[in-house]
Nucleic acid binder design. Structure first.
Lengths: 170, 170
DNA sequence: TTACGTGCAAACGTTTTGCACAAAC
DNA sequence: GTTTGTGCAAAACGTTTGCACGTAA
């Protein structure tokens, strides 16, 4: 087997090997796409992206492989706040920027004294229970509007107004 | 903000009135249950809880009313990290303790300099984009094991050991 | 009376599974 | 040759909807 141009092509195959997964086309295509784009794709988005790359996969194969890759730790499988299933090739811990309009997600690190952040009960009944939780991880979601949805909203506002407005925004 | 036990009967009816919703039995039962327990029920859990209180509702009625109550702002409708649909009668902003095993959720406030926490891009492509997000809200999820799942896990470990033990293999 | 709420059953979109065939080891 | 992966179609799951009947205003 010859490997040319060492970018994510070989990386995907290598990752599969490290988990004793057969480096089939389907798996490489999926993994390459997620590694290259750093995006948090839904199965549907993946299906379309793969088709548009000339690598269509049956829906069953797609789901089977996404689940297998996640099970082996090569992908993170999760659902966004909107409940939509997504997969992420960035398996290191990180936080998220989430668009409240379209559900888009971007990975972020956190700047600031995160260690000092701690929970405090809101309701009486839960206060008792809280002591006995074992907290293992803190995950922050920064919620707002992604550039695209912001632009859409701005456009809508301008259209609704008519005359007065502010400077253009790229 | 402590709710006196036993007063929620009329409270539910009152809340319904404030939103011009007919105080039907179905709605009162649902709202009372959520107000009393401060829990983040799934539709299925609600259905069972209502049945065990002698107030069974058809699944259609349950969903229809949950959605209507959420639409009117009496409940918050959202999906947990596991993607399971849940409803919460605590409509004030708050953070969550989430069980990574069973998905249980408890409301918390946050102690600490939350204002100083800010995002920072993880990946190259996203760094450019990040500047143009408008962040409106920070939501923290404290992830770990709830008391019940902790106990379950401890029991399992004890059972698995017997005498000597070292590593556990996932 | 008239509008709205209920509950059944059927529809819906998403994800999973059973199976025969094909590919990888 | 055995094990594993693929893809089709069908099943399963949670949620929503159409409709006839019942109930609150």
């Amino acid at each position: 087997m010859i490997i040319i141009m060492g970018s994510s092509n070989s990386q995907a195959a290598q990752l599969l090997e490290t988990r004793s997964l057969r480096p089939t086309d389907a798996r490489r295509y999926i993994l390459e796409l997620l590694l290259e784009t750093h995006q948090h794709y839904t199965p549907e988005e993946l299906s379309e992206a793969l088709r548009s790359r000339g690598r269509p996969l049956s829906i069953a194969t797609l789901y089977q492989n996404l689940n297998k890759l996640a099970e082996k730790g090569l992908l993170v499988r999760f659902k966004g706040p909107d409940g939509v299933l997504r997969f992420d090739a960035n398996v290191a811990p990180h936080h998220h920027l989430v668009c409240i309009e379209c559900g888009a997600m971007v990975d972020v690190k956190v700047i600031g004294p995160l260690a000092r952040i701690s929970p405090k009960p809101v309701t009486r009944g839960e206060a008792l229970e809280m002591d006995s939780w074992s907290i293992q991880e803190k995950h922050i979601e920064f919620r707002g509007l992604c550039p695209a949805c912001q632009a859409k909203q701005t456009r809508k506002q301008l259209a609704a107004k008519g005359s007065k407005g502010s400077a253009g925004r790229p």
